[in-house]
Simulated scan of single mutants.
Amino acid sequence: MSLDFSYRHLYYFWVVAREGGISRAAARLGMAVQTVSAQVHELERELGHALLRPAGRGVALTEAGEEAMRQADLIFQLGEQLPERVRGAATTPVRRLQVGVGDGLPKMVVWRLLQPVLDEPDLRLKVVEQPVDDLLADLALHRLDLVLVDRAPAPHPGLRLRTRLLGVSPVAWYAAPALLAAAQDDFPRSLARVPVLLPLPPATMRVQIDPWFERAGVRPRIVGEFEDSALLKTFGARGMGVFPAAEWVEDELLARYGVCRVGDCAGVDEPFHAICAERSVPHPLVARLVPPRPGATARRAPGPRA
């Protein structure tokens, strides 16, 4: 079925149904009655159902016609809005930035990493959170402009991606006020007595914290492990346990969650990396966030696992 031909027939049917008769529709369209009638009959033939039935001096909709009318209303109401929408899009420039965030990356850190472009006029920001392999696949297919992760992916010859370390934050321990005194008493050995919340492996922070416990000679009393960093902080703020977090977001952490700093986690840092695709014409906002090093060669990152 030809879409151009059928949409024209559908439009004539729509006008007939709204006017309540073929004669009135023909007068509105400036066409002969026979022409309008033939167009509607052709639509009925293509759809395989009668859409109109005689009703007095006009016509009425059959059950099939009522459904066709509902769909036609949607189609042509959208069509009436199209010129205005196009004019609005042409006169209002939009700078789109599509960012993927690795699951487990602290949400408050994401805001800090993107802050250099958040004041861009007419910015349209889209942020999605997925497993890193899925994000890298979408980045390679140009469905995303940038990916933020807490660990650099291993090189992969199949994808032209560039990785840049944006910053490294020290890590500290935090607790709800009810746990603060017990956690600070003989810290860090106190972490063997008080409940402890940790990120799940293979989070970069967890990979470093396990050896930190060994060096401190502490066997932690782990009561919860979380993939999502926001959930980890939420449960920690409710007093379920002492938890680690990046110092970069300490001010927001204390203000938003009402927790207190327990002590340092010396030697444990959380890195934050940006990954972008190598393009002949780089995205201007990505170039602002991840400026290429002069003379640097592209670093390749892994695609999705099989």
Rank of each mutant, 00 (worst) to 15 (best):
A203N: 14
T62G: 05
C260V: 00
L78C: 08
Q130P: 01
L165I: 08
Q71K: 07
V286R: 12
F235R: 14
I22H: 06
P188I: 05
R162A: 14
Q77V: 07
A277W: 10
V168F: 04
V194N: 07
V86Q: 05
G303P: 09
D73P: 06
A182G: 02
G167V: 09
R53L: 12
V290W: 02
L52S: 09
R28A: 12
L253Q: 07
G267Y: 09
Y12S: 15
G30T: 03
V259P: 03
R193H: 15
E120T: 15
V128N: 01
W212R: 02
T234K: 12
L139D: 13
L165S: 15
E46Y: 10
P211H: 03
H41N: 12
E42H: 15
I275E: 00
Q81S: 14
L114E: 01
V15S: 04
A172C: 02
D228G: 10
V101Q: 08
P54F: 08
D150W: 05
P177A: 00
A154M: 15
P284R: 09
V171M: 06
P177V: 03
G88S: 13
W14A: 10
P106F: 02
L105Q: 01
M205Y: 01
V99L: 05
D119G: 10
P271G: 02
A203M: 10
G217M: 03
M240A: 14
R221A: 11
E278W: 10
A230K: 09
A140T: 12
V207H: 08
R219Y: 00
A68K: 00
V15Q: 14
A245C: 02
A64D: 06
R112D: 07
D122R: 11
R279F: 04
R24I: 05
E84C: 04
G102S: 14
V15L: 12
L61M: 13
D133E: 15
T62A: 08
P304G: 02
P116T: 00
A216L: 09
Q39D: 10
W173I: 08
A50L: 10
P291W: 03
H156L: 08
R256V: 11
A296R: 02
D186Q: 14
R206Q: 09
G58H: 15
D4H: 12
F235G: 03
P131W: 01
V207G: 05
K107T: 09
G241K: 07
G158H: 12
E66L: 13
D150G: 15
V242A: 05
V109P: 00
L285P: 04
R164C: 12
E252Q: 15
R288E: 07
E66S: 14
L82D: 06
R256E: 10
Y12N: 08
S280H: 10
E270Y: 09
D138L: 09
R189H: 15
V218K: 02
L232A: 07
V281G: 04
V117D: 02
L43F: 13
Q208T: 05
L159D: 07
L51R: 10
V262H: 08
L166K: 01
G258Q: 01
S37N: 10
R256M: 03
A89M: 11
